[in-house]
């Protein structure tokens, strides 16, 4: 019998969707491991999810303080060495603050928090977290953010597009003013992915608008254990 890979979910003070990320990891078939921001040792996990929420109250800027936590130092090291890391919402903000991903996330252009079921197009299915999708597959997952507007300078945006590093794009109304409707991006290696919407809230029929989000978590599992024979 194969042992399920250990996938960590890092909790900061003010993290909110950490339980949901743990659940999604579990439902995908991995062993879900809670990680604490103050611990440098990552408990032998082989992949990490940075969950949504308001780490450290989003004081200063969303994600700005979280990136300096002891656990994040280890996550940054791991990510640079190929460990799969998925940042969702506030986690995406942390990845940008940590310079694992380019650009930044700013206050929604309409200045209000928005929670809705959002249609996305998965444009890059070659990352560690999206290999389970078809290219250009359209999915619906919840979106909920107050600072979800993705911004970067034109050169960075052009580079992201040219290298196919836009992982997901909003379909229909742009919910937060993100440049070029970008909902998620990856690093060049495809192991670090940041996504503003919440795939961990679309893993059960009972509680989500769909189960379209589950493939983010099964994708990384497939990468870690290989395709079952």
């Amino acid at each position: 019998m194969r042992v399920a890979p250990r996938v960590g979910v890092l909790t900061f003070p003010g993290s909110l969707d950490d339980r949901d990320a743990l659940r999604a990891v579990r439902l995908a078939g991995a062993e879900a491991v809670p990680l604490w921001h103050g611990e440098k040792w990552l408990s032998d996990v082989v992949a990490v999810v940075l969950p949504g929420g308001f780490s450290y109250g989003d004081y200063l800027r969303a994600g700005a303080i979280a990136r300096f936590s002891p656990a994040m130092a280890s996550v940054i090291d791991g990510a640079r060495n190929g460990m799969p890391v998925l940042g969702i919402c506030n986690g995406f903000q942390v990845l940008c603050e940590a310079h694992l991903l380019p650009g930044a996330l700013i206050r929604n252009d309409h200045r209000k928090f928005v929670c809705r079921d959002q249609q996305l197009r998965i444009e890059n299915n070659r990352t560690d977290w999206t290999s389970g999708y078809e290219e250009n597959q359209q999915i619906v997952v919840p979106l909920k953010n107050g600072e979800g507007g993705y911004v970067a300078d034109r050169a960075t945006l052009d580079e992201l597009e040219a290298e196919g590093r836009v992982v997901a794009r909003y379909v229909g109304d742009n919910p937060n003013g993100s440049y070029r409707d970008i909902a998620g991006i990856t690093n060049a290696e495809g192991n670090v992915v940041g996504l503003m919407p919440h795939p961990e809230h679309a893993v059960e029929d009972l509680t989500g608008p769909s189960t379209d989000g589950l493939a983010f978590f099964t994708s990384v599992l497939q990468k870690l254990v290989g395709t079952p024979a």
Partner: peptide
């Protein structure tokens, strides 16, 4: 109004507004 409220967090929401009642697991 209700789009400004997070109805998903905690992952146990079975029904939320505008349903007749909110329901959580």
């Amino acid at each position: 109004v209700t789009d400004q409220y997070d109805r998903y967090v905690l992952g146990n929401t079975v029904l939320a507004q505008p349903e007749d009642a909110g329901m959580v697991r």
